[in-house]
């Protein structure tokens, strides 16, 4: 009985996992030029998907929208073709009329700052680890017996 139930679950799981019905690609829709540029940026920021970003830039260029700086967009396209991703990202943001250091279309990260605060935190972290290690390795805690627990003293 037990084996049958196990087999049942295994078969159901494998059948489900292997019933391949490939995910369909989304159809292209009517999107405005700034959205195409934002999509291109999201592809670059998300998974460095250069091909998808190129397509979106191409789509944005086709629309010849006034909301986008066409010259910068063309430069961004060139940068993408030359695999200069940082440059392309910079130009795409500029094409949207935004500044790369404040644009919310880009990821934001704060790195290690090499300040006293940061070094202090590292020291605190190391001290915690040492204290933890000492507690774990602490000898003198009776290993057996009904008495001698920490709270009994």
């Amino acid at each position: 009985m037990q084996k049958r139930v196990v087999l049942f679950f295994l078969v159901v799981f494998l059948l489900t996992a292997s019933s391949i019905a490939f995910a369909h690609g989304g159809e292209e829709g009517e999107v405005d030029a700034p959205t195409y540029v934002r999509q291109a940026l999201a592809f670059l920021e998300g998974t460095n998907n250069v091909e998808a970003a190129k397509e979106r830039v191409q789509d944005a260029l086709k629309l010849e929208s006034d909301e986008i700086d066409q010259e910068k967009l063309l430069k961004a396209q060139k940068a993408l073709e030359n695999s200069e991703l940082e440059q392309a990202t910079f130009l795409l943001v500029k094409a949207l009329g935004k500044e790369p250091n404040t644009a919310e279309e880009l990821s934001f990260k704060v790195g290690f700052k090499s300040t006293i605060n940061d070094y202090l935190l590292i020291i605190v972290g190391v001290v915690f680890i040492i204290i933890g290690g000492l507690i774990i390795r602490k000898k003198g805690l009776p290993a057996t017996g009904k008495k001698g627990g920490i709270i009994h003293g």
Partner: peptide, 11 residues
């Protein structure tokens, strides 16, 4: 923190 969301893609 990633970029503000944009619609229409899975990136």
């Amino acid at each position: 923190l990633g970029p503000v969301p944009v619609e229409g893609i899975e990136a």
